[in-house]
Every structure is written in structure tokens, then in C-alpha cells.
Design a protein around this nucleic acid. Structure first.
Lengths: 217, 217
DNA sequence: AACTTTGTTCATCGCTTGTTGAATATGAGG
DNA sequence: CCTCATATTCAACAAGCGATGAACAAAGTT
């Protein structure tokens, strides 16, 4: 999954060669290529190490074009990750099925989503950039909190947010171990098996009565 | 927890002022300061964004001294994180208590370790650098796998490694949510409460019989 | 055909990075 | 005293970074 040279870019848009002196007008071609390359490189290397020059090279485009379409690297980052980062309606759909078996449904949902390319890349980009880039840390926690945790918290008993965050932290750990660090054999274990193991755990967090109380808050 | 200017460095070694023209000879003083600053900055900003110049400035030392003592930035990174990254004997001690209540003991152990400064810094440095720096990714997974997962895997039933990695992924998620992203209220919840919630979960991963079998491996 | 707009290229700025080599200071050993 | 190894400073290098501004080319507009 290494994006290195300006070889074959995943382009389902227009299957024509790249060298092109005449017949353009809409820059959307270049714009798409830049966005695709940006998503891939941000996901692979994080915000800092994904340089504008390299994104441009991967997109087979002059670096100045990046600034022509997207004012700045920061805006490119935001725009590249803006669209596909909002599949929260699907989470809402899972939640609408009630809390019975919700834990396993959530694991299956995320494993399924993570194994499909266009959604996992922005998530990886955010996760990779979060430690070094304040903006993406905010975006990541914002996304996790608002879109996931807050929704889960609406359907579980108190302490709802803590329950939801325990689920969220386990899912983040799974994403880290499986898709970023690729620790074996977890990385190669089938989604079904992982869901069977983790489902009851998350279910416990969601619906089991709270354990023994505690003095310190 | 921001290390910015060359103000007060955490130095328990020799409490004397920094300006110093005469009476040295052993460079160990500067060496210690560099190592301390490196640990702090690697932990705070990751490998890439912790610049040699900034480490030197924090250590109140000329940047060239970094290269005088430690050939290269890479070696400094390795050396700075080498020593305190091996508290695996403590894990072994937890494991020697048998598998009864092991889950909760493990959570308590890590929460305790993470709340003590000198051990959490190298871990954060590794976690922050892992996505962008191949060496630290290898160090991180290597540490997690060899020192933690492999040891746990020796005392639990099959599939031992998968069980251990499920535990490990949840712990990594907890570290990420609590100490890196600082998601509330999880970040401020007392170790006791967290241990009470997570303990039985990890225990289930460790000792419960494996769930229904699965075709794909 | 003249003009404007939009896409594209190129050269370059200012800055920071990791790293190096020469010079200088400072102690110890004779 | 001189000598020598070590510690420290200073200036600079090459490379890469994000970003800019001027120029050129192809289309739409009149």
C-alpha cells in the first residue's frame, strides 16, 4: 500500500493519459487527482510527512497547482478529509436496531467500513496526524466524540458517556493494532472472528449494570 | 505539560546553574541534559517534530553537542528511549500471580505506570512517532509484542496470541484515548473506576472459552 | 480578431531541517 | 611549563519545505 512514484493512480474518473498540453478548461481533472493523491499520502504518512511536492508529483501535477486550487496545505488537508469522514448516518442506522446485540453490530460495522478503502484512508490520515497536528487531533476527537460516542451515549444507561468511550477506546485500539501497526495474527483474523470475540465485550460496556461504585471521580 | 523554552528542566541530578565556563571535564552533565530534553520532546512532539535544535535549546546546549555525544538524531532517539522502555519485569510479576483476576491487575498496572512520568514519556514518544517513523513503529510493535503480548500469551489458553492481542489493542486504545487525545470524561476518570470497568472485559478475553468457531482464518 | 478568464508552468523566495568541520576553551598528565 | 585529549562554540553546508508571482497557453466571450 505504498504510494511512491507517479505511476498508476487509482482513477476511476477519466481513463486517459496524463501528458496533456491542449484541450483542457475544467481543472477538475487535476483537482480530483490532487485530492486523491492527498488522501492517499495523508493516510500513509500523516500531515507533516505528506509534502505538497510529493502530493503534486503523485498527482502528476505542478506543485503550484495545489496552491492554485487549494489556497494552502492546511485547506487541502481539510478538504481532502472532509467528505468521506461523515458516514455517521450508518452508525445511526445500527443504533436504530435497539441495544440487543448492539455490541457485535458495532464491531461488524466498523470492521466492514475499515475494510473498504475510501473510508479508511481519511480515518488513517486523521489518526496518523492526530499526535503531531493539532487540527487533526481536534478533527479526530471531534469526529469520534460527536459522531460516534455522542450517538451511542443516547441509547445506553448511565454513565452513558463513559460507557460509550470505553467502547470507543477499544475500537480505536483495534484500528491501531489492525490497520496501522498491523500486529499479527490480529491483523489477519477474519472480521467474523474478531466480531465474535469483541461483540460481547462491547455489549457488556453498553448494557451491563455499572460495577461497584468508587470514591474518586 | 508543554516543554517550550529553556526554563526549568526536570533535573534531579545536579541542582546548579547552567552558565558555566570553567570546571567541567566530563560531558556527562550535558549528556544527561540532552537525554532528558530528548525524552521530553520526543514524547511531546514525536520523532519528526522534535528537532535537534529544539532539543539542544531545551538542554541549554549547542546543537553540535548532540552530534558530538550521539552520532545522529536517530541514535539519540534510540538511546533516549532504550533504558526506561523495559519495565517488562513488572508485567512478569503481575503474571506470576496466576490468571485469577489477571485482567483487572493488568489494567491497574498500566494505569499506574502511565500515571508515573518517567515511564509514560518514552511510550508516548513511541506511540506518537510510530505512524511516521518506521523505526519507532518497529520498536513500538516490537515492545508491545515481545514484552507484553508474548508474556501474556504464555499463561492463557489457545488462541493465546489472539487473546493477548485483544487485551493489548484495548490497552492501546485506552492509552490513546486517555493520555494522547484526552477524551473526557474518560481522561479524568479515576484509575479505580476504569479498572473496575475494564478488568472483567480483559479477564473474559484471557480465560473465557473461545466463542463459536469461524471458517475464515 | 481582440479581450478576458482559467488552467498550467517555471523560477525563486525565505525558512528550517540534519549534519559537519574548523576553531577555541579547559581540564589532566608529564 | 608544555602537551594532549576532551568539551564546547561558531559558522556554514546541502537539501527540503511551504508559498508566491510572473509569464504562457488554451478556451470562452464579445
Amino acid at each position: 500500500m505504498t504510494v511512491d512514484e507517479p505511476d498508476e493512480m487509482a482513477e476511476q474518473h477519466e481513463p486517459d493519459t496524463v501528458a496533456r498540453r491542449g484541450r483542457w478548461r475544467t481543472g477538475e481533472r487535476s483537482r480530483r487527482r490532487i485530492l486523491d493523491a492527498a488522501r492517499a499520502l495523508f493516510a500513509e504518512r500523516g500531515y507533516d510527512r505528506a509534502t505538497v511536492r510529493r502530493i503534486a508529483a503523485t498527482a502528476q501535477v505542478d506543485p503550484a497547482m495545489v496552491y492554485y486550487f487549494f489556497e494552502t496545505k492546511s485547506r487541502l488537508f481539510t478538504e481532502a478529509l472532509a467528505l468521506p469522514v461523515n458516514p455517521a448516518e450508518e452508525v445511526a442506522a445500527e443504533l436504530s436496531g435497539g441495544v440487543d446485540g448492539l455490541g457485535e453490530r458495532i464491531v461488524r460495522h466498523f470492521l466492514d467500513v475499515w475494510d473498504r478503502a475510501p473510508t479508511v484512508e481519511p480515518m488513517l490520515a486523521l489518526l496518523r496526524s492526530a499526535p503531531t497536528d493539532e487540527r487533526s487531533a481536534a478533527m479526530f476527537t471531534g469526529y469520534i466524540e460527536q459522531e460516534i460516542i455522542a450517538r451511542i451515549a443516547t441509547v445506553v444507561p448511565e454513565p452513558a458517556r463513559l460507557r460509550a468511550e470505553l467502547v470507543g477506546s477499544h475500537l480505536m485500539g483495534l484500528l491501531l493494532a489492525r490497520h496501522v501497526l498491523r500486529i499479527e495474527p490480529l491483523a489477519s483474523t477474519s472480521p467474523d472472528t474478531v466480531a465474535t470475540w469483541m461483540g460481547p465485550t462491547l455489549q457488556r460496556y453498553l448494557t451491563d449494570p455499572a460495577p461497584a461504585p468508587d470514591p474518586t471521580a
